[in-house]
Design a binder for these strands. Structure first.
Length: 475
DNA sequence: ATAGGGTTAG
């Protein structure tokens, strides 16, 4: 075998199951001294990264005698594809200052990481680099820009990029549709979808984007009509994700029994995500009877997921059934439940400030504590009532109130309010979905202080202006 | 003539 053979064979060893094959080929590569060949090395490190072994990928990269655009892009992409966005950005900055040459693939990769970080500042800066390079037109690169701006909360810029494209792929349309959906702008989703179908054929991702956009944008009837049409025409492959969107739609409109029926009739086994969406709907519409059925399924399927207990308890609390709230809390104490630790961050002047719940170690803790107390007095005077059912710990109400005030998104919003001038949108990101109490807190802050707040949670953007949110209080 | 990196997703 020569370098051509190895580079070709390695490309076929893709995916997490292939790690064994990659290692076998790697040993042959090492024996025949092709490890430091540029093409073979790039392919090798790429395969390690795609199989999830980023350490080994990095080792191969570090051993390359020279580096070129492709090998640098491959290792950055390795971090990016594993969601290690900080690491991808750091490595890019190192390699770039060391003189790395970038092409459109490098930028496409880098933009993916900036989307993950939701860093508008870095995103704009990289867009600037791209413009200065005066690259020819590449659809993929423009698609990444659309996605980056949408995930950084600047939908207007996404649309500007989209409008200026001389050619568009299905992915361009899909990225734009997803963007509107992520921001809860349902009517733009439907309008753009209609324009799209005049020009290109939608694929299954398009339909996912449209259904999810209708759901998040509150366009219940439009979404159901579109779904009926898709089912009737039968020219698209429907996945469980499509059904998930429609179940979410039915749940949003309060048609919980219809949602249950669809779960029974659909050609897929319901996943925890499907039940979870319905449980969320039961919380919004305070439906105890369906909620109990759904919660039982979920607690059987994933007994260790704390979130399900919290929502069930929220439903009981909203219905005033305090004995049941207590029962769920005890149930939770009996099981070993785990919860991904919540964290929120805000980027000010290109510095990422991260907050964790009841953060005791933040250097500005004293200032933040003082400011949050001041805010609390103001918003309570305006009618804010803390939602104590968001706390499941067995503590008294006063302690619950203190715990709620420690939530990471409140700390980040407060920090933003302290450190940005009036008129500027406060942009906060969170790794989990936002809790009801924090959502309400942000609403009051937007109203009392006249500040727009953009809150990106795990699923979508909440844009809070003058006491109202683009999610319509359903998320 | 033949080889390595890339975009959308309840």
């Amino acid at each position: 075998p020569n370098e051509f053979t190895f580079a070709t064979v390695l490309t076929s060893c893709s995916g997490p199951q292939s790690i064994h094959q990659v290692k076998q080929v790697h040993s042959l590569v090492a024996k025949t001294n092709f490890e430091s060949h540029m093409f073979v090395g790039s392919s090798l490190l790429d395969m390690y990264a795609k199989a999830g072994n980023i350490q080994e990928a990095r080792r191969v990269f570090d051993m390359l005698p020279e580096r070129d655009t492709v090998s640098c892009t491959a290792i950055i992409s390795g971090y990016a594809q594993l969601g290690l966005d900080d690491e991808a950005l750091d490595l890019f900055r190192q390699l770039y200052s060391a003189g790395m040459q970038c092409n459109y693939v490098t930028f496409t990769t880098l933009l993916t990481s900036l989307s993950g970080l939701a860093s508008l500042d870095y995103g704009k800066q990289v867009h600037g680099l791209i413009l200065r390079k005066e690259l020819p037109f590449f659809v993929v690169l423009q698609n990444s820009l659309i996605d980056m701006y949408s995930k950084c909360g600047k939908l207007l810029y996404s649309r500007r990029v989209f409008d200026h494209m001389p050619q568009r792929s299905t992915i361009s349309w899909n990225a734009m549709l997803m963007g509107y959906g992520r921001h809860g702008i349902g009517h733009e989703v439907v309008q753009l979808f209609r324009t799209m179908t005049e020009e290109v054929k939608p694929d299954s991702v398009t339909l996912l984007a449209v259904l999810s956009g209708c759901s998040h944008g509150g366009l219940v009837d439009e979404g159901l009509d579109i779904f009926d049409l898709i089912v009737k025409e039968q020219n698209a492959v429907l996945s469980i994700g499509h059904y998930g969107c429609v179940i979410d739609l039915l749940g949003r409109s309060g048609r919980l029994q219809k949602a249950l029926d669809l779960i029974q009739d659909m050609p897929f086994e319901p996943t925890p995500a499907i039940w979870g969406s319905l449980l969320g709907a039961c919380r919004v519409h305070v439906n105890v009877s369906v909620g109990e059925v759904v919660a039982q399924k979920l607690l059987d399927m994933e007994p260790g997921n704390a979130g399900n207990y919290v929502i069930l308890s929220n439903i009981y609390a909203a219905a005033g059934m305090w004995k049941d709230v207590f029962r769920v809390r005890n149930l939770m104490l009996e099981k070993t439940v785990t919860k991904e630790p919540g964290q929120s961050w805000i980027i000010l002047d290109k510095v990422i400030h991260t907050f964790r719940s009841s953060d005791r170690f933040h250097p500005r803790k004293k200032d933040i504590d003082a400011k949050i107390k001041e805010i609390y007095v103001d918003i309570k005077a305006a009618g804010f009532v803390p939602n104590l059912s968001c706390v499941l710990h067995d503590v008294d109400d006063e302690q619950k109130e203190r715990m709620l005030l420690g939530h990471s998104e409140k700390l980040a919003v407060t920090f933003g309010l302290m450190n940005t001038p009036p008129g500027l949108t406060i942009r906060v990101m969170k790794n989990l979905r936002i809790c009801v109490d924090c959502h309400n807190f942000a609403k009051f802050v937007s109203k009392i202080y006249g500040r727009e707040i953009s809150l990106r949670d795990k699923n979508r953007f909440h844009l809070l202006t003058d006491g109202a949110c683009t999610c319509g209080d359903y998320w």
